[in-house]
Design a protein around this nucleic acid. Structure first.
Length: 569
RNA sequence: CGGGGCGUGGCGCAGGUUGGUAGCGCGCCUGCUUUGGGAGCAGGAGGUCGUGGGUUCAAAUCCCGCCGCCCCGACCA
């Protein structure tokens, strides 16, 4: 490709509203342009990148036995209603009313694929089956972020496996899991598969493929000793977690203190420190009021330095909202304690850490008052122990004697074992088994955000001068610069000749044939980030060589055109 | 959805408190010179100052509403 004809405008300065390095560089290098918040155009160079990433994903999907197809973007709302996801995913669904009825723009395709495959598969002989597509998805994200990292319209590869039983589903899952590892290896990403929470997709076993990054929206924990890795939402700390202690011993009296304006743990800790008592958040007891799907009231207890993972409570539990507190004026919001909670119709659940810690500093159930020396089984009782506390850096590993470290990361892919979650709710997802009995298909689903990969790879592969694409995804293999070609016929001819030779050899070349100054050419080449930069100028011509620079390593060498051809083909 | 910030040529910004016919750098066009790490000179094009209303002789500037964008949080297959 001759640069003089390429739709490309590089920017010397980053757009003022771009924060992440990948976002700034992708815009500066002319790969993407924003149309609206979280809605982007891929310009020619950016689209080549998308195509290259997609090609790798396709190869590995095909190799793993998955078959590519293409489902509609439009999904009838009735289909989502059948599984209840019209409500579950309500806040991200984009609706569209058309002559044929009400639709949503597909945010993911479990329902569509289940009904489609259900209609095609009637026998166990048709299974196992794995289908995939590469398609634009729509999610009305509350907050698009960091350029291509989180957008409202994005390209995704989603695959779905169908099996006759759980064991076969496990095998299909393993094949996909391995394929994902190959894909991320080939994309030049350093990743960690972690045990994850299944969220709105549902199902049991699932893994997120995490890429460590300072702009990641997720955190996972990892044990350096045994390799255990889990999203913090799914992570469970080992039993031997150190007990927090107020140092007062079991005999510490319960004392109520006036603690005005301390509705949060932080403000409480600060107040005690101001009063000369040096406490930490871990010595306080966090009491969170919840209600479940049957409107039962639950009080969840965790040490004050932890969060309550509401999803672990079960039965659709959610935190009290303002209306709930308004309906229960006897609860002193911000000063709730566990004392006599059962008398207020709470079921008290506590993380096991509550058993090993204490005495606690916690709410005294009166506005502006807290109690110290609050002791388990003397001042309050627990109905059930559930691991509802978030893990903390340094917690013991659940699998070995190591400790857990935190890592910030981007979710690059996610694989789920869905089981019968969808096939039970969608009509027709049945097949005749060997005995002629009807069974339901065990499903798995597997997603990779293709357009997000553009941002993730850019985050990992750039420096102060610009992007540095891995060879496997780079839009072009070689960026060829004709230094001063505008005034030197020799240089122009030599560069054009090399361009033709390289192109004939099957090498993808971006040829800078613009009448630009050498500085502009070098700067743009570094910004665009093709793996090899080859410069020809009067100086190198005199020596009969070309200058070769490896964009990633910065290594420079002088080689003859013949040597260059030989090394690249 | 809560908090904060910002909307002025394609991009980055100044001007705004003190109202008086819009400016700088980059980019773009023409010409000449220049050419190994974002060239110089000269000339030129391009702006409903997000939008609607209000105050005023006069609004980019002051007041009110709305829209959009970014960051933090909540949320997030």
């Amino acid at each position: 490709m001759r640069m003089s004809r390429l739709l490309l405008r590089t920017l010397r300065e980053a757009p003022g509203d771009a924060e992440a390095a990948s976002h700034q560089l992708l815009v500066r290098a002319g790969f993407i342009r924003r149309l609206s918040s979280g809605v982007y155009t891929f310009l020619p160079l950016g689209f080549k990148l998308v195509q290259n990433i997609t090609a790798i994903v396709r190869e590995e999907m095909d190799r793993a036995g998955a078959q590519e197809m293409l489902m509609p973007v439009l999904a009838p709302i009735e289909l989502l209603q059948a599984t209840g996801r019209d409500a579950i995913m309500d806040d991200i669904l984009m609706h569209l009313t058309a002559k044929g009825g009400d639709f949503v723009l597909g945010p993911t395709h479990e329902e569509v694929v289940t009904t489609t495959i259900g209609g095609e598969v009637d026998s166990y002989r048709d299974l196992p089956l794995n289908v995939y597509q590469v398609q634009t998805k729509f999610r009305d994200e509350a907050r698009p972020r960091f350029g291509m990292m989180r957008t409202r319209e994005f390209i995704m590869k989603d695959a779905y496996s169908f099996d006759a039983d759980a064991e076969a589903m496990n095998r299909s899952y393993k094949v996909m899991y391995d394929a994902y590892c190959k894909i991320f290896d080939r994309l030049g990403l350093t990743y960690t598969p972690v045990v994850a929470d299944s969220g709105a997709i549902g199902g049991d076993v699932n893994h997120e493929f995490m890429v460590a990054s300072a702009i990641g929206e997720d955190f996972f924990v990892q044990c350096a000793d045994c390799g255990y890795a889990a999203n913090i939402e799914a992570a469970i700390a080992g039993e031997a977690a150190d007990a927090a202690s107020t140092g007062g011993g079991d005999s510490e009296e319960m004392v109520v203190h006036d603690t005005p304006d301390t509705p949060t743990i932080d403000s409480l800790v600060e107040l005690f420190r101001d009063r000369g008592r040096d406490i930490t958040a871990a010595q306080t007891l966090k009491c969170i009021t919840l209600k479940d799907a049957d409107n039962n009231m639950i009080l969840a207890l965790v040490p004050g330095d932890r969060e309550v993972l509401v999803g672990r409570v079960g039965n659709g539990a959610v935190a009290f909202d303002e209306a709930d507190f308004a309906a229960h004026p006897e609860l002193a919001k911000g000063y709730i304690g566990p004392a006599d909670a059962q008398a207020k119709s709470f079921r008290v659940i506590a993380d096991p850490l509550v058993r090993t810690g204490g005495p606690w500093i916690t709410g005294a159930n009166e506005q502006g008052r807290h109690a110290t020396g609050v002791t388990l089984d003397r001042d309050f009782t627990v109905d059930e122990y559930v691991a509802v506390a978030s893990v903390a850096e340094g917690d013991p590993c659940p699998n070995c004697s190591g400790t857990l470290a935190f890592e910030q990361a981007v979710e690059a892919g996610h694989t789920f074992q869905l089981g019968l979650t969808y096939s039970q709710k969608i009509d027709g997802a049945e097949f005749a088994d060997e005995d002629g009995k009807l069974g339901q298909m065990y499903m798995g689903c597997y997603g990779i955000g293709i357009s997000r990969m553009v941002a993730v790879i850019a985050e990992l592969h750039h420096d102060d001068d610009g992007l540095a694409w891995p060879a496997a995804v780079a839009p072009y293999d070689v960026h060829l610069l004709g230094l001063g070609a505008g005034r030197s016929e020799e240089v122009r001819d030599a560069t054009a000749k090399l361009y033709d030779q390289l192109t004939e050899a099957g090498i993808k070349v971006l040829y800078d044939d613009r009448d630009a100054s050498p500085g502009v050419m070098f700067a743009d080449a570094d910004l665009l980030g093709m793996p090899k930069i080859v410069a020809i100028g009067r100086k190198s011509l005199e020596k009969g060589v070309v200058e070769l620079k490896d964009r990633s390593t910065g290594d420079r060498s002088e080689v003859t055109p013949e040597e260059l051809l030989a090394s690249l083909s």
